[in-house]
Each structure stands twice: as C-alpha cells, then as structure tokens.
Amino acid sequence: MSKLLNVSSSPHVRDQVTSQNLMLDVAIAMIPATAYGVYQFGVKAALVLLVSILSCVLSEYVFETLMGKPVTVSDGSALVTGMILGLNMPPAIPLWMPFLGGVFAVIVVKQLYGGLGQNFMNPALAARCFLLISFAGPMTTFTYNDAVVSPTPLAAFKAGQSVDVAAMFIGRIPGTIGEVSVIALLVGAAYLIARKVISIRIPAAYLITFSLFVFIFGQHDLMYVLTHLCGGGIIFGAFFMATDYVTRPVTPKGQIYFGILLGVLTGLFRLFGGSAEGVSYAIIISNILVPLIEKISLPKAFGKEGK
C-alpha cells in the first residue's frame, strides 16, 4: 500500500441523499405549479419568477462573497426561496418588487441570522409579508385573462358572491402565480411525499384543523369548506411553505401541534380578519413559535416512556 488509510469514527458509510438533492426535489415538486402559472399568466409571470430567483441567488452570492464566507449557492436553497417568492407574487407586479423581496428574503431574513439553517422565519414568506405591508396595492392587484383586474375567488367568496370551485381546483382563476392551481400543487405535493422529502404530518394536521375550524365557525357546509381549501394559498402553504425544514419543528409531535396552530390561525385570519387571505401570516407567526413548540413536544426516549 502506497497511500495511508483513512481513519474516522463510525459509521463509515453515508446515505446518498444530500441537502442539495432535497432542495432540488422541492424545486422539482414546484414545477407543475410553476408551469401552470406561466401557462395561465404568460410571459410576465415567467419574468416575475426569473427576477425572484435571480434576486435570491445573486443576493446569496454577493453577500457571502463580501463577507468572505464560503459561497453556498450550489446547495439550491436560494433557488427554492426564489421560486417560492416568485410563486407568491401577483403576475402583474412591477419587477423591482420581487427583486427587492429576494434581497430582503436572503439577506435580511436568512443571511443576517447566520445563513442556511439559522433563519427562524421562512425567508420567502417573510419577504412576501414585507412586500404586502409595504406595497399593499400592487401586491393585491390580481389580473386574469390579461389586464382584467378582478378579485380572487376567495375575496369574492368572503364578500358573499358565489364562486366556481371546479375552476379553482384547476386554477382558472386570478391569484398569485403559484397558488391558483390546486391540482398542480397536489401533483408536486405527492412527489414530495412519495420521495419522503416531507412528511404528511404538518399538511394533514394543518388542513384537517383548518377544515374543522371553518366548518364550525364559518358555515356548516362541506362545499363551503371545500371552497376555502381550494381558494387562496392554503394548499401551496400547507405542502410547500409550512413544511420548510428550517422553520418547522423538528420533533414529530411538534409538527402535529404546528399544523394545528396553522389551521387555527389561518381559519381565524380568513374568517375574522380584514383580508380574505391568512396563510402567509399564519405560517410566519407559527414559525416564531417553533422553539416553544419543540420544547413541549420532545419525544420520550425508547424505553423511557411513561417515566
């Protein structure tokens, strides 16, 4: 033997899954919703997505370079943040807004707290909320069939109008680029669950709690519940944003509590709040509570149950 042998502590084998693979899987899972958004809203939607992604990736690259830190753009997390941010934008938004959002998401919410794994709020959602508060007008102006300004079905529904649930399920409605097509989102969600990238715990607890909440405090009507499930960003939020690794509890029981909290908050905001929407705020508020949820949901070690 000419070379020296490597010596390290066991185990000596590693799974093939890397953080980068997981991020790419999340990106792949968003392709159906992205494709549908571009198909429905056209070139301007594609540009919004492109600007969001470039803004996030460039922000990460520039910040890490300036700070003399290793550049981690290749881990794919900035790409995912950019996609989620873009999919959360109305298609007709001025392009400098998603750009600003990307800078805020990556630099303020993620990098200033220590980079990947250290942020306590979902960067894309925090940026969306930042833009919503700062530029309420453009952020809530939705177009459909080119330049026709119309309310989202959820807003119309809240105002007491009747809506077409089938159109909402397919996505033939105004809304943000990525939230409109429930079916496209569910295809991506199925991919994530089948690949074991996410567990069903958070989305299931979230959607069940939310359904019960609107059934009890809204109308005792299944069609009413279904309309709420197909409207707004709840499906997108439940499968793609509430499940963000960094900002959800890592304890299995905590994930259930987290889902329940999300369901209650979203129901509260949608039924009793000023806006028809509530998913983004529900998620970032729950994000803040994650350390507390983890504290009360630590599992009992094997063989120490009941002790």
């Binding site: 590693r14 997981l22 567990s199």
Partner: peptide, 25 residues
C-alpha cells in the same frame, strides 16, 4: 464515503429523528 462527503450546514430536515431507534432528537 466519509471523506468524500464534506459536512455542510444542518437544514433541520429531521431525517436523523426519523431513523433514530432510541427515539431521541
């Protein structure tokens, strides 16, 4: 495989939690 795979930041994915036979975090 240990030398090939350099450590990166924890993303809190929870895979370690899922596989732990001692049910700790």
């Amino acid at each position: 495989e240990v030398a090939i795979n350099a450590p990166t930041a924890c993303i809190r994915c929870g895979r370690c939690v899922n596989v732990c036979p001692s049910h700790v975090i």
